[in-house]
């Protein structure tokens, strides 16, 4: 993170408070969705979507990924690729087995 003026840092702290309010509100939304009595598919999709927004807020602002070095992004691209493989390869092989 490059050096910032005290005024910049104070502005950042105000943003942190807004992010906190957004995260708290989205937590209430997540709980609210669970009471909607949706079927499994839409319920999972909606809950994951809200969790993704919350996760993105934490990563972008608290972990300051909005203004990070390229090398960190490169590490994260690899991480996301292998994470998706970790989730979808076992699941894909299982679903394939059931279908076959």
């Amino acid at each position: 993170m490059t050096a910032h003026s005290p005024e910049d840092i104070r502005k950042e702290t105000r943003v942190y408070i807004f992010v906190f309010i957004a995260l708290a509100a989205l937590t209430v939304v997540t709980v609210g969705i669970s009471y909607l009595d949706l079927s499994t598919g839409p319920a999972v999709a909606l809950a994951l979507f809200v969790a993704l927004i919350k996760g993105s807020l934490v990563a972008a602002f608290f972990m300051h990924l909005l203004s990070e070095r390229k090398l960190i992004y490169a590490v994260l691209v690899f991480t996301v690729f292998f994470f998706l493989a970790l989730i979808f390869l076992p699941l894909g092989s299982f679903l394939n087995q059931v279908a076959g």
């Binding site: 709980v31 669970s34 999972v44 809950a47 996760g55 934490v58």
Partner: peptide, 16 residues
């Protein structure tokens, strides 16, 4: 990061 993990654990384990 620990907070981030909880953000996904919460709906996955408690709400779905």
């Amino acid at each position: 990061f620990v907070d981030l993990v909880w953000i996904f654990l919460f709906p996955a384990l408690y709400l779905l």
